[in-house]
Amino acid sequence: MLFKNIDKLVIAAVLIAFSQTASAEKIGKCDTPQCVEYFKKYKTAAKRGHPLAMLTLGQFYHHGYGTEEDEKKALKYFKKAARAGYTSGQFKAGYIFMTSEELRDIGDATYYLEKAAKYDYEGANFLLGMLHFDKKYDNRDLEKADEYFAASYKKKYEQMPTVVKFIEAEMPIDQKNFPQLYAAMNDRPLAQHKDGTLSFHDENVEVITITSPPLVQTFNKQLVSFRKAIKSTGTRFQGKTCAERLTCMQRADIADSTDFNNLFLDGFGGASNSQ
């Protein structure tokens, strides 16, 4: 049974899950003198070889923080951060290659998103599933879509209940079409509400909201670490390769205003494209 009908969820605070507050300050469009000054400082740090500065500079260009929006330059710096081993850069480069009308390249999108998925970057499996299922990408492969959607479902990625309805509007989720996703849904059925919407069961989970520090505080802390130029060792890190530095494989980006959850289900089931 893939769905369970429920009237309400009973939440028992036993296990702990962490989520980031929706009100956290994010990188978005900004043209104030302060934003322009931070953009200049990060650009200088990026020129000195700091990959984390490159990652943030890519976000500045992507959202127009302290500068004009420029997808090409955003992609340039995301790719630089990706080459240095930052999974965040891999994910964001793949995202631009997947969604940009001008820069779209499905092969490159797949390449970068698969790298991010390898390190379990949140949302990477979801994007890969959509890349291989949604006809608008002209890249349909149900076997791969099944693999990535199943992985995303097992992680309880929040957009998956809507994805399930999106898929079932075209074909059934069964052992023939989506064997891995079908098995995952049988193992952990979705809750079906009276209004027809689906959701994950939240039993035994206490959600603790953690508010991110103000952008200025985060920027200043990073800029202190950028005061010295990095001597090249082939990976831009002193003394250790990126593979030896676990931190470069972790999520290192600052929250920004792109909503990755709904972007690929625009107009379906109430989902909206918001940035």
Rank of each mutant, 00 (worst) to 15 (best):
K4S: 10
T218M: 15
A183F: 10
G28Y: 04
K240N: 08
K41D: 13
D256H: 15
G129Y: 05
F39K: 02
F237W: 01
L142T: 05
S257I: 14
R104N: 07
I11G: 06
T241F: 11
P51H: 06
M1R: 04
A74L: 05
K40W: 02
T233H: 09
K29N: 04
F226M: 04
A74P: 10
K73F: 14
T162Y: 03
A46M: 01
L265W: 08
A17R: 13
A13G: 10
Q238E: 13
V10S: 08
K176P: 01
Q192A: 02
Q222C: 12
K118R: 15
R104S: 11
R236N: 14
T162N: 09
L127F: 15
A117E: 07
K194N: 08
K231H: 13
I254W: 05
V36W: 00
S212M: 01
K154L: 10
M160F: 02
Q34I: 12
R188F: 14
T44Q: 12
V164F: 04
A24N: 14
Y182N: 07
I167G: 02
V163G: 00
P161D: 09
F18Q: 14
G270T: 11
A84C: 05
A24T: 09
L265V: 07
L127D: 10
Y86N: 02
L198M: 03
K79V: 12
